[in-house]
Computed example of a mutant assay.
Amino acid sequence: MWVFYLISLPLTLGMVLFTLKYFAGPEVPRYVMLTVGYTWFCSLSIIVIVPADIWTTINHIENGGISFFWSWSYWSTFLLTWTVVPLIQGFEDAGDFTVTERLKTSVHVNLLFYLILGAIGLFGLVLLIMMHKNWGGGVLGFAMGCSNTFGLVTGAFLLGFGLSEIPKGLWKNSDWTIRQKVLSHKIAKMAVKLDDAHQDLSNAIVVSILFQFPILRYPCFVF
């Protein structure tokens, strides 16, 4: 079994490092790369944990380490999915100028998302109570069912989108005539956006100059 560990662990870690190096841009912050790398390693850890769990079960070996690694993988993935990664995404998407304000914006956006999910879950709980259904799993079972349902629905939605959009995109890109029309349309839209951004920048420069030199707001005429 140690031979399997010596092969699978470096292989899994190498896959994570190679993928990070291949996809990450030079401007990606270090903490983002560390978080993404740890997240991918937790996801790929089943390559190591599942065969080890099967081997210990077949050979009737009591090994508390397997339970520890399962708990580590599960709770790490849980915290990363619902807390760490959403906060970092909101922080990076925020347009504020200070770290504190960007963090506040991220927390606000994620709290709003969690409140919506909580309201939906509360509505389902009240609906179950009103229907007088006999569900012996209790609140914990209901929460686990909601979590699994959310994961399955999200996975099915993303998988369905990928199965339809990826072949569709490849089919469109294979025709150079259609590709040229699409790119021409995108260029026109980007030109309009560039002009709007240039106008906003000019307005911002004028406003900043007026704030730096208040005397320019009240021009004096010397006769």
Rank of each mutant, 00 (worst) to 15 (best):
2 W>V: 09
4 F>D: 03
9 L>T: 10
10 P>H: 00
15 M>E: 00
25 G>R: 04
27 E>M: 06
32 V>Y: 04
34 L>N: 14
34 L>A: 15
35 T>L: 11
35 T>S: 03
39 T>D: 07
40 W>D: 05
42 C>H: 03
43 S>D: 10
44 L>Y: 05
44 L>Q: 01
52 A>W: 04
60 H>T: 10
60 H>R: 11
63 N>A: 14
71 S>I: 12
71 S>C: 12
72 W>T: 07
81 T>S: 13
82 W>R: 03
83 T>N: 06
90 G>S: 09
90 G>E: 06
94 A>F: 02
95 G>R: 10
103 L>R: 04
104 K>Q: 08
106 S>P: 05
107 V>N: 04
108 H>Q: 13
110 N>Q: 14
112 L>T: 12
112 L>S: 12
114 Y>N: 15
118 G>F: 15
120 I>A: 14
120 I>T: 13
124 G>P: 01
134 N>Y: 05
136 G>A: 07
141 G>N: 05
141 G>Q: 01
143 A>F: 09
150 F>P: 02
151 G>K: 12
157 F>I: 15
158 L>K: 11
160 G>F: 01
160 G>C: 01
161 F>T: 08
164 S>I: 13
167 P>T: 00
167 P>F: 01
169 G>V: 00
169 G>D: 01
170 L>P: 01
170 L>N: 04
171 W>V: 04
173 N>Y: 05
175 D>N: 15
178 I>G: 05
179 R>E: 06
179 R>S: 10
182 V>N: 02
186 K>S: 05
190 M>F: 06
190 M>D: 05
191 A>V: 03
191 A>R: 08
192 V>D: 11
192 V>K: 12
193 K>S: 00
194 L>A: 15
194 L>F: 11
194 L>S: 14
201 L>S: 07
201 L>M: 07
207 V>L: 06
208 S>V: 07
210 L>H: 02
217 R>C: 10
218 Y>K: 11
218 Y>T: 10
218 Y>C: 10
